[in-house]
Amino acid sequence: MAGDTAMTNEAAGPSPNVDPAIFSSLQAKIDQETGIKDELRAIVDTLSKQGRVTQSILSRVHNTPTAELETAVLVPCADSLAAQAATVKTLADAASKYPFYKWNNIWQRDMQNVVSSLQLHDWLKGGNLITLEEVGQRLNVPVNVKDEDTFHITIEDYLLALTYTIEELSRLAPNAVTLGDYARPLQISRFIKDVHAGFQLLNLKNDILRRRNDALKYNVKKVEDVVYDLSLRGLIPKKE
């Protein structure tokens, strides 16, 4: 068996069986993509910090009387959202150089937070639901792009943001009562039931959107309980 032994020690010739060039180009590709991720991550970190400021401002809605909402919450919130819009523009410019769906997991959650803040701000301001197109105009980025590989806000981002907004409003309903605003829960109840009706139209699969949608019914029930408590005690203000 001397031949077998020699076989295992034979040196590689001019055409190597395992070409080192394969692995050096693999490493170069890995390093390149790590650089891209770092570049995008830096911008998203800025957006994330700004998002926390915006959410901190919006959190004051739970202990601010409705009459003072404009000056105490809505104005500083609009300022913070404007700063976020500028960062989103920077992110859009950087991210549009690369395949959208390869990297969108980096910014997805933070973009959803921006959209949710916009939705909540607009509802508090005028009782309206900002549309996907309006979000795009406000942030100066395209939405629901299908034929061009560029940064955009997806339908899923908008819908997931909407579930966060509904969750926040369901928390606001009892807090509004605590602050003496007995009309607010009824407005919230109508709005989230309308949104929930819209969600019922969707044929959702078993993914994150479905899980978020399944949680909506608990928010609807929570606000319905508040409205029930108020109506039971005759506290809902009558229309003049």
Partner: peptide, 16 residues
């Protein structure tokens, strides 16, 4: 009737 049904019908087609 929910005022958002039309919006969600569009979303449904896209998601499907």
């Amino acid at each position: 009737k929910s005022p958002f049904l039309h919006i969600f019908e569009t979303f449904r087609a896209e998601l499907d």
